[in-house]
Amino acid sequence: MVRRLLSYIIPVNVASRKSEWSKNLEITWNNGELVMDSKNTNYSYGSLQRILRKGLQAIGFDEIQAMEHILVLGVAGGSVIKTITDEIGFKGKITGVDIDAGVIALANEYFGLDAIPNLEIVIDDAFEFVLKTKDRYDLIIIDIFQDTAMPNFLFESFFSKRIHFLLRAKGILLFNTMLLSKQDNIRNDDYVSELQQLGFDTEVIPRVEEHNELIVARKV
């Protein structure tokens, strides 16, 4: 494909869309990879897929394969789901929650998200979903951004306690965060301290792809 080869020299735009929640989304060939980007950051595949793959490797692919139900809060193009199904070979149930129907439509069109048989997509606000769901999960992945901003509710005590409740015994939280300021560093330090008080064994993987910090928390 000419566009794919050209992308090793310069990024090649394939499609641009706006949605209710995302001012601008682009599908682009970049260094031979088809990626989804917002105005200021990578949304799926490319660097984001590498970031979350590191978190999954820290948990252990064998451990993930043995799980029954994974919850993904913040789907975007579905790159972490592709890693879980294609690379890890996970056969259990995956529930993906995203507030933006437009981004899911793009993910279906360009990345074949709707062809994954063990995936259920729910269009909903993540906060509302965790309040309503009656399921329990072995792994909860949080990857929620609006461009480079992270909603405040992700770091609130009530939400953290609800995540703890929804995880099965020895369940795991994988949380992708972005650090762009000193205040973001303080926020993450406070958040990790709170997770430890709730009864999580925490591991922090700092400065993944420069600005991202992964938090891996095991329920004990």
Rank of each mutant, 00 (worst) to 15 (best):
L52N: 08
T41F: 12
E128C: 10
R168L: 15
K134H: 04
D147I: 10
T95P: 13
M1F: 07
F155T: 15
Q49F: 02
L73M: 13
T85V: 11
E128W: 01
L214W: 07
G89R: 04
M150D: 00
M67T: 01
L139D: 06
I99W: 06
S160L: 14
F159L: 03
A149V: 15
D37T: 05
E210V: 07
Q65D: 09
I141C: 00
F165L: 11
F127Q: 14
N118F: 13
A101V: 03
L106P: 00
K219I: 00
V216R: 06
L73S: 08
A76I: 14
V204H: 06
D114A: 07
G74C: 08
L56Y: 09
A15R: 15
P151Y: 14
T83P: 05
E33Y: 08
A169W: 10
Q49M: 14
N13E: 04
A126W: 00
V204E: 04
I99L: 03
E68V: 03
D190H: 08
F153I: 04
V80Q: 14
D184L: 15
Y137H: 05
I9G: 10
L113V: 04
T41E: 09
S79A: 14
R162D: 10
I205M: 15
W21V: 08
A15N: 15
Y110A: 14
V122S: 02
I186F: 05
V130G: 01
K132L: 12
Y43E: 12
H211K: 13
N212G: 03
S38W: 05
Q196L: 06
L71S: 07
Q57M: 12
F90C: 08
P117L: 03
Y43Q: 10
L6Y: 00
A66D: 13
N42L: 10
G112E: 14
D147F: 14
N30T: 06
V220A: 14
G199F: 11
N13Y: 06
